[in-house]
């Protein structure tokens, strides 16, 4: 049984991403011993970097919201991100969560040598990103899929040495049909129920 942390990011009530979240939670309910859900907009999280060290690097600070977010990261073994891809990447709200929470002492510690960051989140063995894209797969490839790379190559590197990543994407949502969207929800539920 897994311990899943779900980070949800969408500003609108009733958004399709909300249905994605519910499908993910339905899938996780059979696979997880415990689920924690963070809704960044509902929490009123501020993504702007406001607590920094003298070099200009983000630090966690003592804001209880951020301290709690960091504790959740240290607690889970499965991390699930649910968000719309905007401008080829994570929305600013979610990027701010990465900038401000995945800091030194939480996600990594400094080390000598070419790998300057030694991972601290060895407890996370599985990362899942579920994202909707307005444009087609080919347009996203042209734009470089930066968000996917931040996820698979950036975040995953701070987790367990053999952490696995799963990318569940619905491309071309702007021109999708109802059945496209429904089958994506079914896919999300099915995949998450099969974790780990």
């Amino acid at each position: 049984m897994i311990r899943a942390l779900v980070i949800y990011c969408h500003p609108l009530l009733g958004a399709y991403n909300e249905a994605v979240r519910e499908a993910a939670l339905a899938g996780l309910s059979s696979a997880a011993e415990e689920i924690r859900v963070t809704d960044l907009y509902a929490d009123g999280f501020n993504p702007e970097a406001t607590t920094l060290d003298s070099d200009g690097r983000c630090v966690l600070g003592d804001d209880p919201l951020l301290v709690g977010y960091a504790a959740d990261l240290a607690w889970c073994d499965t991390l699930v991100l649910i968000y719309p891809t905007w401008w080829a990447g994570q929305p600013a709200m979610l990027k701010g969560w990465i900038d401000r929470v995945w800091v030194e002492g939480v996600a990594w510690e400094s080390a000598e040598g070419p790998e300057k960051r030694q991972p601290l989140l060895g407890n996370i063995k599985r990362l899942v990103a579920i994202s909707t894209h307005g444009s087609s797969k080919s347009v996203n490839m042209l734009e470089g899929e930066g968000g996917k790379r931040t996820f698979t190559r950036g975040l995953a590197k701070m987790c367990h040495r053999r952490a696995r990543t799963t990318w569940l994407a619905l491309y071309g949502i702007d021109t999708s049909s109802l059945s496209d969207r429904e089958s994506f929800l079914a896919k999300v539920e099915r995949q998450l129920s099969r974790l780990p």
Binding site: P91, A92, G96, I98, D99, G154, L155
Partner: peptide, 19 residues
């Protein structure tokens, strides 16, 4: 500054809200 291989949230947000 490049943070987490990408744009800082505030610049990403500028793209999202202005563009």
């Amino acid at each position: 500054p490049t943070w987490w291989t990408g744009l800082p949230a505030i610049l990403k947000g500028w793209l999202e809200r202005v563009m």
